[in-house]
Computed example of a mutant assay.
Amino acid sequence: MPTAPTLRVLSARDAARPNLINLSLHSGPVRDQDCPWVKIGKLYVSATIVGDNSWLPLISRLSKEGVKQYTVFTGRHGNIPNIVDSVGNATGIFDPSHTKEDAAGQQRAMAEFPGVQIALVDTSTNARFQTQWLKRETRNQILKGHSVIYTWCYGLFTMCEAPSDTGTPGYASALRSNQTYQIEKTVADLVNDYWGWVPNPI
Protein backbone atom coordinates (compact mmCIF):
# COMPACT_ATOMS: atom_id res chain seq x y z
CA MET A 1 0.00 0.00 0.00
CA PRO A 2 1.44 3.44 -0.91
CA THR A 3 2.39 5.77 1.91
CA ALA A 4 -0.16 8.52 2.52
CA PRO A 5 0.92 12.06 1.63
CA THR A 6 2.37 14.01 4.53
CA LEU A 7 2.27 17.52 3.05
CA ARG A 8 2.67 20.18 5.73
CA VAL A 9 1.70 23.81 5.23
CA LEU A 10 2.91 25.84 8.18
CA SER A 11 1.32 29.12 9.20
CA ALA A 12 3.26 32.37 9.35
CA ARG A 13 3.01 32.17 13.15
CA ASP A 14 4.41 28.66 13.46
CA ALA A 15 7.03 28.04 16.17
CA ALA A 16 8.77 25.30 14.16
CA ARG A 17 12.48 25.77 13.45
CA PRO A 18 13.81 24.96 9.96
CA ASN A 19 16.92 23.22 11.29
CA LEU A 20 14.75 20.71 13.18
CA ILE A 21 12.35 20.31 10.25
CA ASN A 22 15.38 19.51 8.10
CA LEU A 23 16.55 16.81 10.48
CA SER A 24 13.12 15.18 10.41
CA LEU A 25 12.90 15.45 6.64
CA HIS A 26 16.26 13.73 6.14
CA SER A 27 15.41 10.84 8.47
CA GLY A 28 14.15 8.81 5.49
CA PRO A 29 13.57 8.98 1.73
CA VAL A 30 12.38 12.45 0.72
CA ARG A 31 9.28 12.51 -1.48
CA ASP A 32 7.75 15.59 -3.10
CA GLN A 33 4.80 15.55 -0.71
CA ASP A 34 7.12 15.49 2.32
CA CYS A 35 8.65 18.92 1.68
CA PRO A 36 6.99 21.49 3.99
CA TRP A 37 5.72 24.90 2.93
CA VAL A 38 5.06 28.12 4.79
CA LYS A 39 1.93 30.15 4.00
CA ILE A 40 2.55 33.90 4.21
CA GLY A 41 -0.70 35.50 3.14
CA LYS A 42 -1.14 34.20 -0.42
CA LEU A 43 2.57 33.45 -0.82
CA TYR A 44 3.95 29.93 -0.34
CA VAL A 45 7.66 29.34 0.28
CA SER A 46 9.59 26.20 1.19
CA ALA A 47 11.00 25.82 4.68
CA THR A 48 13.71 23.34 3.66
CA ILE A 49 14.98 21.55 0.59
CA VAL A 50 12.56 20.69 -2.21
CA GLY A 51 12.50 18.15 -5.01
CA ASP A 52 11.90 18.68 -8.71
CA ASN A 53 8.11 18.63 -8.33
CA SER A 54 7.52 19.45 -4.66
CA TRP A 55 5.17 22.30 -5.49
CA LEU A 56 2.73 20.01 -7.34
CA PRO A 57 1.34 18.38 -4.15
CA LEU A 58 0.82 21.93 -2.85
CA ILE A 59 -1.16 22.87 -5.98
CA SER A 60 -3.15 19.64 -5.64
CA ARG A 61 -4.13 20.49 -2.08
CA LEU A 62 -4.91 24.15 -2.71
CA SER A 63 -6.92 23.43 -5.85
CA LYS A 64 -9.21 21.18 -3.81
CA GLU A 65 -9.76 24.16 -1.51
CA GLY A 66 -10.86 26.24 -4.49
CA VAL A 67 -7.60 28.04 -5.31
CA LYS A 68 -7.28 28.14 -9.10
CA GLN A 69 -5.03 31.08 -10.09
CA TYR A 70 -1.28 30.82 -9.47
CA THR A 71 1.93 32.59 -10.32
CA VAL A 72 4.96 30.32 -9.91
CA PHE A 73 8.44 31.86 -9.69
CA THR A 74 11.21 29.56 -10.92
CA GLY A 75 14.71 29.43 -12.43
CA ARG A 76 16.91 29.50 -9.33
CA HIS A 77 18.23 27.79 -6.23
CA GLY A 78 17.91 29.08 -2.70
CA ASN A 79 20.65 29.41 -0.08
CA ILE A 80 21.07 30.55 3.53
CA PRO A 81 22.00 33.35 3.06
CA ASN A 82 21.83 34.26 -0.64
CA ILE A 83 24.97 35.93 -1.94
CA VAL A 84 24.90 39.31 -3.70
CA ASP A 85 27.88 40.95 -5.39
CA SER A 86 29.04 44.55 -5.04
CA VAL A 87 26.66 45.87 -7.72
CA GLY A 88 23.57 44.03 -6.50
CA ASN A 89 23.64 40.89 -8.66
CA ALA A 90 22.44 37.67 -7.05
CA THR A 91 25.20 35.11 -7.62
CA GLY A 92 25.45 31.34 -7.82
CA ILE A 93 21.71 30.64 -7.75
CA PHE A 94 20.30 30.71 -11.28
CA ASP A 95 19.72 27.41 -13.08
CA PRO A 96 17.84 27.11 -16.40
CA SER A 97 17.16 23.42 -15.77
CA HIS A 98 14.74 24.45 -13.02
CA THR A 99 12.78 26.59 -15.44
CA LYS A 100 12.52 23.64 -17.81
CA GLU A 101 11.43 21.27 -15.02
CA ASP A 102 8.82 23.71 -13.72
CA ALA A 103 7.47 24.35 -17.23
CA ALA A 104 6.78 20.61 -17.45
CA GLY A 105 5.19 20.75 -14.00
CA GLN A 106 3.05 23.69 -15.09
CA GLN A 107 1.61 21.69 -17.99
CA ARG A 108 1.09 18.62 -15.83
CA ALA A 109 -0.71 20.57 -13.11
CA MET A 110 -3.05 22.34 -15.52
CA ALA A 111 -3.88 18.98 -17.10
CA GLU A 112 -4.44 17.14 -13.82
CA PHE A 113 -6.20 19.75 -11.68
CA PRO A 114 -9.48 21.06 -13.15
CA GLY A 115 -9.68 24.82 -13.61
CA VAL A 116 -6.12 25.53 -12.47
CA GLN A 117 -4.24 28.28 -14.32
CA ILE A 118 -0.51 28.79 -13.73
CA ALA A 119 1.70 31.64 -14.92
CA LEU A 120 5.42 30.77 -14.80
CA VAL A 121 7.99 33.52 -14.14
CA ASP A 122 11.73 33.00 -14.74
CA THR A 123 13.63 34.86 -12.02
CA SER A 124 16.97 34.64 -13.86
CA THR A 125 15.98 37.54 -16.12
CA ASN A 126 16.16 39.85 -13.10
CA ALA A 127 19.44 38.96 -11.41
CA ARG A 128 20.26 42.50 -10.32
CA PHE A 129 18.42 43.63 -7.20
CA GLN A 130 16.60 40.29 -7.25
CA THR A 131 14.88 40.67 -3.89
CA GLN A 132 13.50 44.12 -4.70
CA TRP A 133 12.15 42.80 -8.00
CA LEU A 134 10.67 39.73 -6.31
CA LYS A 135 8.91 41.88 -3.73
CA ARG A 136 7.38 44.11 -6.39
CA GLU A 137 6.29 41.28 -8.70
CA THR A 138 5.01 39.10 -5.87
CA ARG A 139 2.90 41.91 -4.47
CA ASN A 140 1.52 42.66 -7.93
CA GLN A 141 0.46 39.05 -8.46
CA ILE A 142 -1.12 38.75 -5.01
CA LEU A 143 -3.04 41.99 -5.51
CA LYS A 144 -4.33 40.52 -8.81
CA GLY A 145 -5.79 37.66 -6.76
CA HIS A 146 -3.16 35.03 -7.57
CA SER A 147 -1.55 32.67 -5.10
CA VAL A 148 2.23 32.81 -5.49
CA ILE A 149 4.72 29.96 -5.11
CA TYR A 150 8.53 30.21 -4.96
CA THR A 151 9.71 26.79 -6.15
CA TRP A 152 13.32 26.79 -4.88
CA CYS A 153 14.89 25.29 -1.77
CA TYR A 154 14.84 27.35 1.42
CA GLY A 155 12.37 29.84 -0.01
CA LEU A 156 11.69 31.11 3.51
CA PHE A 157 15.22 32.61 3.42
CA THR A 158 14.92 34.26 -0.01
CA MET A 159 15.14 37.77 1.44
CA CYS A 160 18.14 36.88 3.61
CA GLU A 161 21.23 38.13 1.76
CA ALA A 162 24.95 38.53 2.38
CA PRO A 163 27.69 40.30 0.38
CA SER A 164 30.04 38.23 -1.76
CA ASP A 165 33.55 37.49 -0.50
CA THR A 166 35.98 40.27 -1.32
CA GLY A 167 38.89 38.69 0.54
CA THR A 168 37.78 39.74 4.00
CA PRO A 169 39.52 37.66 6.70
CA GLY A 170 37.07 35.33 8.44
CA TYR A 171 34.44 35.65 5.71
CA ALA A 172 33.68 31.92 5.46
CA SER A 173 33.38 31.55 9.21
CA ALA A 174 31.06 34.56 9.45
CA LEU A 175 28.91 33.16 6.64
CA ARG A 176 28.56 29.81 8.44
CA SER A 177 27.65 31.58 11.67
CA ASN A 178 25.00 33.59 9.87
CA GLN A 179 23.56 30.43 8.34
CA THR A 180 23.36 28.74 11.76
CA TYR A 181 21.77 31.82 13.30
CA GLN A 182 19.12 32.08 10.57
CA ILE A 183 18.14 28.42 10.40
CA GLU A 184 17.69 28.19 14.18
CA LYS A 185 15.04 30.93 14.18
CA THR A 186 11.38 29.98 14.30
CA VAL A 187 9.20 30.30 11.21
CA ALA A 188 7.34 33.12 12.98
CA ASP A 189 10.61 35.00 13.62
CA LEU A 190 11.70 34.65 9.99
CA VAL A 191 8.35 35.88 8.72
CA ASN A 192 8.59 38.85 11.06
CA ASP A 193 12.16 39.60 9.94
CA TYR A 194 11.76 39.26 6.18
CA TRP A 195 8.16 39.04 5.00
CA GLY A 196 6.24 41.96 6.46
CA TRP A 197 5.90 43.44 2.95
CA VAL A 198 3.56 40.62 1.79
CA PRO A 199 -0.08 41.79 1.70
CA ASN A 200 -1.90 40.46 4.79
CA PRO A 201 0.98 38.12 5.72
CA ILE A 202 -0.68 36.50 8.75
Rank of each mutant, 00 (worst) to 15 (best):
G51W: 03
L23C: 06
K42N: 14
R108D: 02
V121F: 02
A16D: 11
Y150A: 01
E161F: 02
Q33F: 15
K42F: 06
S97Y: 11
C153L: 01
I202F: 15
S177P: 00
A162C: 13
P199G: 08
R17I: 09
V50T: 15
K42P: 00
A103E: 14
E184R: 13
L175V: 07
V198D: 05
N140Y: 04
E112Q: 14
I83H: 10
V87M: 08
V87C: 09
K39M: 04
N192R: 08
V9R: 01
K100T: 12
S86Y: 05
P57W: 11
W133D: 09
T151P: 02
C153M: 01
R128Q: 15
Q179R: 09
G145M: 15
F94Q: 03
I21M: 12
V67K: 02
L134P: 00
T123H: 03
Q182E: 15
W152R: 02
N178A: 13
E137M: 10
N192H: 10
G51E: 08
G105F: 02
V148W: 02
P36H: 13
Q33E: 15
Q69C: 09
Y44T: 07
F113A: 02
R108I: 06
A90Y: 07
C153K: 00
T91E: 15
K185E: 12
A15K: 11
P81H: 05
R76G: 02
P199S: 11
W37Q: 07
P96G: 08
F94A: 09
P29I: 10
E184C: 12
N178S: 09
S63Q: 05
N140D: 12
L20K: 14
G75A: 10
D189Y: 00
R17W: 04
F113I: 01
L23Y: 10
N192A: 12
W133S: 04
R76D: 07
A162G: 08
S27F: 11
G51D: 05
A16F: 10
A103D: 12
G28M: 07
R31N: 06
A47E: 11
S54L: 02
A103I: 01
R76L: 06
D193N: 11
T125G: 09
A109W: 04
L190T: 03
A188E: 03
L25A: 03
A16P: 06
D14E: 14
I202M: 15
S177T: 07
I40Y: 00
N19W: 06
A15G: 08
K100D: 14
